[in-house]
Amino acid sequence: MNIFRLVGDLSHLLAILLLLWKIWKTRSCAGVSGKSQIMFGLVYITRYLDLFTNFISIYNTTMKAIFIAVAIATIYLIYFKFKATYDSNHDTFRMEFLIVPVGGLAFLVNHDFTALEILWTFSIYLESVAILPQLFMISKTGEAETITSHYLFALGSYRALYIVNWVYRYYFEGFFDLIAIVAGCVQTILYCDFFYLYVTKVMHGKKLSLPA
C-alpha cells in the first residue's frame, strides 16, 4: 500500500458516498445515469467474488464490502425508492453495446482462463467504460448538477491516482498488471474532457454546462 493508492481508494469511496448522499438528501436522482450505476454494481460484484476465496487484509475486505453495498443501495434508490425522479428519457445509452464486447474481450484477453479470473478481467474492462452512459447523459442535457460534477471529479481522481500508484509499484516493487494498467489508462482518458470542464467551470463556482 502506497500513498497514491490509499488516497485513490479514499477518493473512490468519497465519490460513491457523495452520489448516494446527494440522491438521499435531495430525494432525487435527476441527472444521474442509472445505467452507469448498474454497470458499476456489476463491476464490484464480478470483481469482488474473491472475497470468498482470497483474504488479503481487513482493509481490503472492508472496502470491497462497502463498495458492493453502496453500489446496490445507489441502484435501489434510482430504480425503486426515487424512481419517479429518474431521468430515463436522457439515460438512453445501450448497456449491451458495452457489456457484450467487454465480455468477449475478457474471454480472449485474460491472465488465466478460469471463471473467477475471467470475471475479474470482465470487471476491469467494464469499469473502464462504465461511466460512458453518465457522460453521454451530460452531453445530451448539456449540463450537470454541481454535486454530480464533484462525484465525477472524485471518481476520475481515483483513476488518475491509480496510474501513479502503478508507476510507483513498478519502480519500487517490480509489480505490474498490464490488463489493469491498459484498462485504467483508457478509463482515465475518458475523464480528461470532463476534468477540463471541471477545472474551468465548477472550480470557479459555475455550474457545469457544455458549450452550445
Binding site: 470483481r47 481490503n60 479470473e117
Partner: peptide, 10 residues
C-alpha cells in the same frame, strides 16, 4: 502470470 493470480488492489 502463474495460476492463482493475486489481485490485491480494489
Amino acid at each position: 502470470h502463474a495460476h492463482g493470480h493475486k489481485h490485491d488492489e480494489l
